[in-house]
Design a protein around this nucleic acid. Sequence first.
DNA 1: ATGTAC
Length: 392
Amino acid sequence: MTTSYHLIASPDTWIEGEALRQLEQTATLPGMRAAVGLPDLHPGQGYPIGAAFLSERIYPALVGNDIGCGMALWQTDLSRRRFKPERAAERLQGLEAPWAGELDDWRAEFDLEPTDFDAALGTIGGGNHFAEMQAVETVMDPAALSALGIETDQLLLLVHSGSRGLGESVLRGIVDQQGHQGLDPASPEAIDYLQQHDQALRWAEANRGLIAQRLFEALKTVGKRRLDIWHNLVQPVDWHGERLWLHRKGAAPADRGPVVIPGSRGSLSYLVQPLGDSAHSLHSLAHGAGRKWKRGEARGRLSGRQRPEDLVTTALGGRVICEDKELLYDEAPENYKGIERVVADLVEAGLMTVIATLRPLLTYKVRRPANRNGARPAQRQPGFRQPQRDRL
DNA sequence: ATGTAC
């Protein structure tokens, strides 16, 4: 069966040919009913990222390895006026190490069995994952903002992370056994995969919660969770009376209330209100700006123009903690499409409205990465330099 | 994306 795909993006939005080819190819998989590319669509490992798929069968490889990856937003009680990014950065240390506290309460709260990966519970991970202190920049919908319980004079914490090694092991387990084929939802393999997948969703949610708690403790504040949204998952849906499977791979849900669509660390993030009937978009939205350049290409592309010390401050005046040079280049704002275009596409498609924009003040990625030889600790990060406000 | 593959 060949299913046509639907792309939600204006002609002005640049989308890589390889991503479209992957979207088209994925739409031809057996049992596929609908495939939607969102404006942050970009190539993944065989399957595109920034897409949603509706199918009769369950495709673990479409969800990918980071099952349960998503965004969570907290309201803190830190005054935005009194916040000193450099002081806060000094307090944020050792978040890569296993959490020293007791995990039993976390497991109980999120209904988790102990796993071999629990030492990573409460750690951010690599790639595009981060924890970021943000300030409300512009409010477009004050009523929706206060309904969410968000105060404009106190900082927010946005956490983007997933299920770390656990999701990876769940995917590897099923792919080693079944390859990339779609699973019959009634089969024992599918039932077993879904049970592990659902646990990985809860683990990822708990992970974001513990990451947030560790930052709150370091910054001597507290926070209240305002939303926690998965963008990598598969779930059953009732589609006109039929039970089908909705896969989201880097796609935020449009049917779970407000979501945050972050830009790169150098641009604003958008807190948005999904709208109305979004069946043609498979009840999905973009999950971010979308990469423009592949990981690993960035250093070669940028290192001639920008040094590491240039990359630890952003055009919006934000401070970045990232002591892994490769990662610092890989996640530089230049690697990402403009979030403004992505957001405009979704608004013009009638899929959402903007509640508020959020400004990144301090982005935590990683300190002291494990060296390839495991020996020499990373160089101390260069000091904070005053951002160039005139570029705003 | 990942206690990464060789």
